[in-house]
Each structure stands twice: as C-alpha cells, then as structure tokens.
Computed example of a mutant assay.
Amino acid sequence: MGTADNTMGGSYGAREFGPSEWAGARWRRGSRWSAFEIIAMILGFVVFWPIGLAILGYKFWQSRYGGPDLQTLATNKWQDARTMMSSNSSWACGGAARRASRFYAAPTGNAAFDDWRTAELARLDEERRKLDEAQREFAEYVDAIRRAKDREEFERFMAERRARPAGGDGRPA
C-alpha cells in the first residue's frame, strides 16, 4: 500500500465491508426482493408501465416503513376479495341486492311504519311484475307483427316469381 492508501484508509478512501457488515448496512434497511416481486415488477413495466412503477414504489415504501412483502399483500387482498364475494354482501350480488337492501332493511322498531313499508313494497313488487308481464306481451306482439310482415313479403315474392315467364332472363315481361 502506498502513502495515499494509508492516509485515506486504503483503496482510495473506500471502506471495505465484510459479510456481516454488508448484511447490516444502514442503506439496506428494507427486505430483499423476492423472485415474485422482481417478476411482478418486470411484467408490470412490460404490460403497463404504471403497474411496474407502483410495485417499485411499494417496495421503497416497504423498506422505509415496513409492512408485508408484495406476495403476502397480494395474497391477503385476494383472500379478502374472495371472502367478500362469497359472503352474502350487497357488493357480491350486484345491483339487485343493493336495491333490495335499500328497500328490505331491518325493522325500524315502529310497527306501524314497518307494516306500511311492507305493504308498499308488496304493492311495488306487484307493479314490477305487471310491468314485466306487459313488456313480455309487447315483445311477443311485435314478434308476431314481424312474422306476419315477413310472411306477406315472402308470399309477394313467390307470387311475382310464379308470374315470371319460364324462359328467361329473370326479369318480368
């Protein structure tokens, strides 16, 4: 080692880390990247760059504030979503359950109001059934008119075809 090496602490001032010092370095506070996280980030950048950027940001956030790794987070969110979908929640059943939950709420404690609400809901259900029936009947009516019109056009075509002279060029005489 030369004089510059001795003065600067060897290797031009660079500090040499041993295996135990490297693992506990202050700049390396966060957890290591798993293969899942690396693949997810690369695929995220390939598919749609903001996804890869979000994964990269999450890893930096995790290294600073802690938290689960990306695979654990994704697994937990997936399980939460499955639980929500399998439960009897209004989100899982779609719009019908949300509308029903608005109308078929728990009793209020006031018997008169609850009776009135039940009667009104029954009346509205009956009106809905009547509207659905009328819509079905109208669709059948329109279908019957279409069929009659198609039949009439077809019969007119056949009559014109029969009236054509047998000889020829396909045009009426």
Rank of each mutant, 00 (worst) to 15 (best):
G109Y: 09
E140N: 05
E133H: 07
E140K: 05
E133R: 05
R147K: 12
A122I: 05
A148Y: 07
V142Q: 03
R117Y: 03
D114V: 09
R156E: 03
R102W: 14
L131E: 04
F138G: 00
R128M: 11
F138L: 02
P165C: 14
A100K: 15
K130F: 12
R98M: 13
K149A: 04
D115W: 12
E140P: 00
R162G: 07
E126P: 00
Y141V: 05
L124D: 08
K130H: 11
R123P: 01
D125M: 07
P165M: 15
V142H: 11
R156W: 08
E127W: 11
F154H: 08
T108L: 04
R117W: 14
A97V: 12
A97H: 14
R123K: 15
D150A: 05
E152N: 04
Q135L: 05
F154L: 06
A144L: 03
L131C: 09
A148I: 10
R128V: 11
F154K: 08
R151W: 07
L121P: 08
T108V: 06
A148V: 04
A96L: 12
E153N: 06
A119W: 01
R146E: 02
Y141H: 11
G168H: 10
K130D: 08
R99D: 01
N110S: 02
A122F: 10
R128Y: 06
E155H: 02
V142R: 03
A139T: 14
R161K: 03
L124I: 04
I145K: 09
P107L: 09
K130P: 00
N110Y: 00
A139G: 10
D115Y: 12
R161M: 10
D115E: 13
D150S: 02
A163M: 14
F154N: 04
A159F: 11
R123L: 12
A105L: 06
R102V: 09
P107R: 13
M158T: 05
Y104H: 15
E152H: 06
Y104R: 15
F157I: 05
R151L: 01
R151I: 07
E153H: 11
L131K: 02
F103E: 05
M158N: 07
G168C: 08
I145P: 04
S101G: 15
E153Q: 10
T118I: 14
A148T: 00
D115L: 15
A105G: 06
R102Y: 15
D125H: 11
E133P: 03
R161D: 11
D114K: 05
K149F: 01
R128P: 09
A111P: 08
A111N: 10
D143E: 06
E137L: 13
F154V: 00
E152Q: 07
